[in-house]
């Protein structure tokens, strides 16, 4: 079984980020790290392959400046190899442009299953995985909390507001994995040593056979028109207990659909 995981390398969320005023996009010049929301996909892929008693987990990523730091983290967790697409012409790509690039890289690997996070922690469009499936013309299932491979069938517990739905489709397929449904392993020190030697194939647009006009700024049909500061969080409501505090709290939690 061959599983490909889409991983995004993002600026470290622990450090203050900065937007490029000309594009309104996040600056990505410094070291990038593995997006935590993709670490669940990596872990799920490793568990599927381990459970199947064999197979291979490969990574695909698109990042500027031939950045591999985040890929190395996923390789240290246990992935076998990676394809990195890096090309100056990719700057300013929108979700569809990104999906075209990743789809082209994925199709070189002919996987049985493609996994992705539901959404990245920096862009949050939450649309790239399904666009990849569209470009590749394969079925996709979103919000997976559990995945099982049975022959040529992918069986997924798809998370919903009320619980989960059981959904199946044929391979090859793309499944987006909900954050938090598995516990990503810490890379072992031997894994970190080995990751340094694992192959990362670096490709540009011409190697993928993609036209510059379909990707990057020129191919983008989506534009960030305006960026505004997030509102400062308001102080919470203080409930004075006059014998009915518990009811007010239950009502509040009910509004949030927590209870």
């Amino acid at each position: 079984m061959k599983v490909v995981v889409c991983v995004k390398q993002i600026p470290d969320p622990a450090l203050p980020g900065e937007l490029d005023p000309s594009t309104n996009y996040l600056k990505r010049d410094d070291k990038l790290i593995l997006d935590e929301s993709d670490s669940y996909g990596v872990e799920m892929a490793l568990q599927l392959v381990e459970g199947a008693g064999g197979g291979e987990v490969s990574l695909v990523s698109m990042a500027p400046n031939n950045e591999v730091s985040g890929l190395r983290t996923a390789l240290a967790m246990g992935a076998e190899d990676a394809i990195l697409v890096s090309d100056n012409a990719l700057a300013g790509s929108d979700a569809l442009g990104t999906a075209r690039v990743l789809a082209a890289a994925i199709s070189r690997l002919s996987p049985d299953l493609v996994l992705a996070g539901v959404e990245s922690s920096d862009g949050y469009t939450g649309t790239v995985p399904e666009m990849i499936a569209g470009v590749l013309d394969i079925p996709s299932i979103t919000f997976a909390k559990q995945i099982e491979i049975d022959g040529n069938t992918v069986k997924v517990q798809r998370q919903t507001e009320a619980g989960y739905d059981d959904v199946e489709c044929q391979t090859p397929a793309l499944v987006s994995v909900t954050a938090g449904v598995v516990e990503p392993r810490y890379p072992s020190f031997k894994g970190i040593m080995a990751a340094k030697k694992k192959p990362v194939e670096e490709l540009d647009l011409s190697a993928l056979g993609l036209d510059e006009s379909s990707v990057g700024q020129s191919g983008a049909r989506q534009e960030t028109v305006r960026v505004t500061e997030a509102e400062e969080r308001q102080a919470g409501e203080v409930i004075e207990d006059e014998g009915d505090a518990h009811e007010k709290i239950v009502e509040f939690l009910g509004e949030l659909k927590i209870v």
Binding site: R72, T73, A76, Y186, P187, F189, I192, M193, K196
Partner: peptide, 11 residues
């Protein structure tokens, strides 16, 4: 290797 050591320490 110092890069590897840094990654180990980060993990």
């Amino acid at each position: 290797d110092i890069d590897i050591a840094d990654e180990m320490l980060a993990a």
